[in-house]
Design a protein around this nucleic acid. Sequence first.
DNA 1: TTTCCGATGTACT
DNA 2: GTACATCGGAAAA
Length: 222
Amino acid sequence: MLGCLTVVAGQNDPTDIVAGPALEAAPRLLGLWLDVRSGSGRIVGGSVVEVEAYSGADDPASHAYRGPTPRAEVMFGPPGRLYVYRSYGIHWCANVVCGPEGTAGAVLIRALEPRLGVEHMWSRRPKARVETDLCSGPGKLCAALGIGGDHNGVDLLDLESPVRLRSPDGGEASGAEMVDDAGGTRLEVVTGPRIGISRAVDRPWRFGLAENPHLSRPFPAR
DNA sequence: TTTCCGATGTACT
DNA sequence: GTACATCGGAAAA
């Protein structure tokens, strides 16, 4: 049996979710939509299918571990902001800041299921061969959506922002479905260790929608 | 198929 | 100087 969590796609209010600690917010962000409006007015976006939680002083793998450095400053700000950083000097990675202002916490978006402006994503990621390569990784999805350093700190909850986190337009996030006691459909969430880190590797703070084809990589079986 | 490694901007030792 | 929340091309198997 994989995982022990479920989420109800699209039934969570983004404002409520990001108000809580990153570890609690992370699985609840699954199924929400992240979309980006470019200068030309085109919208690209997708539903969140994979995330990782990072906290602050108690998390050696977090950029906020050593306090509010210039890079990690946004992580200490109000929730619902976008924290963008450069990875390995080449790629951009996008996080949703969580928890009350003054505390550090963020959820790294690791994979999206493309929903809007897929043709535009292909033009930004010509190397991709199949649709499941478009947004199946933190650097890939930033490239596909056009997220970069200029977006660091934008308010994801403001409808006027160029980058927004919001409830789905329609179409559920896809994955392994479950039926709860009340007869509602829920999506099964799998967990595992965070990827690409060397500290606090034992914490299962990676979350994904089970069996979704857009995951950055498989979750270890358990 | 899997593994290895280069590219290259920041932050920190 | 070294490490790093990555990716993709080349080499090995």
